[in-house]
């Protein structure tokens, strides 16, 4: 088992005088095997992103555990150990603009990955960067040397995915990676994640509010609501025989191309 998440919970405390507890994630448990593609689906505020941030070691869990290849990332403190974790578990986020520093050329975000890799020769680095861009369907001469604002959202997100081709992480956590991207290029980007899985056995946790997207790429879909996983199954099980009332609502609310909603 690559990743084991057990009873993971996060409670935020808000307010100064009248303290209020917000249970963002409640006792979430799941496992991911090598090469498995799972989707975490739910509406805004359901706790999907909080869960992903706890796995990425950005947000400390209130209770419960994350075990990746037998190790608890929160017990890692030495820089070599942390570098190992960052190389193995990689995050891709919703807003591909926010991931870039607007003052630097896009090359920087790719070359930064070499801090986690043992590659000395500059020629080798340049070669790898160019190869990784080709893998994600970009022409190196069109994007290298340019600034983030000169590229489209789709191109920026592809560059973020090119980092995965350089690092070859074992687990990618993609949090709404295509919701800010044009409908016309979504399929192409979604396919890149499937390619990584098929070619390198990378496991993927795909986080989305759109059951339609999850349906095409996942081995398993987990439905999250109010901080808990309320249902899980294969895409066909979830789409054809949803059991939880929330899953049914989610399914009904996806706009379809060939069917019109009742009452619309």
């Amino acid at each position: 088992m690559l990743l084991k998440v057990k009873d993971l919970s996060k409670t935020f405390i808000v307010g100064l005088l009248r303290k209020k507890e917000i249970h963002a994630v409640r006792k979430v448990s799941f496992n991911i095997k090598k090469g498995e593609f799972i989707s975490l689906v739910g509406e805004s505020g359901s706790g999907k992103t909080t869960t992903s941030r706890m796995i990425l070691r950005i947000l400390k869990p209130s209770s419960g555990s994350v075990i990746f290849e037998g190790k608890d990332p929160w017990a890692l403190h030495k820089i070599e150990d942390l570098k190992w974790y960052w190389k193995q578990v990689h995050g891709i986020f919703q807003d591909p603009f926010a991931s870039f520093n607007p003052l630097y050329k896009v090359d920087r975000i790719l070359y930064q990955t070499f801090n986690l890799l043992n590659i000395e020769s500059d020629a080798e680095k340049e070669h790898l960067v160019k190869e990784s861009l080709k893998e994600v369907g970009l022409r190196p001469e069109e994007v290298l040397g340019r600034y983030p604002h000169e590229l489209s959202g789709g191109q920026r997100q592809r560059i973020m995915i090119a980092r995965c081709y350089l690092l070859k992480p074992k687990l990618i956590i993609a949090d709404e990676p295509i919701s800010m991207i044009d409908a016309s290029t979504r399929a192409g980007i979604l396919k890149l994640f499937s390619d990584l899985r098929n070619n390198y056995g990378t496991s993927v946790i795909f986080i989305t509010h759109d059951l339609g997207l999850a349906y095409y790429v996942s081995d398993r879909i987990m439905i999250m609501h109010n901080g808990s996983i309320v249902e899980e199954g294969t895409p066909d099980e979830i789409m054809e025989h949803p059991k939880h009332h929330y899953t049914m609502r989610l399914k009904e609310d996806v706009p379809l191309l060939y069917r019109k909603w009742k009452g619309f």
Binding site: A183, S184, R186, A187, Y216, L256, L257, Y258
Partner: peptide
């Protein structure tokens, strides 16, 4: 544009995802 639509429907599953 129409072919790039990704919705969970048999028609789209049949033709696959294209951008």
């Amino acid at each position: 544009l129409i072919h790039a639509v990704i919705t969970p429907e048999p028609e789209i599953r049949k033709r696959g995802l294209v951008s």
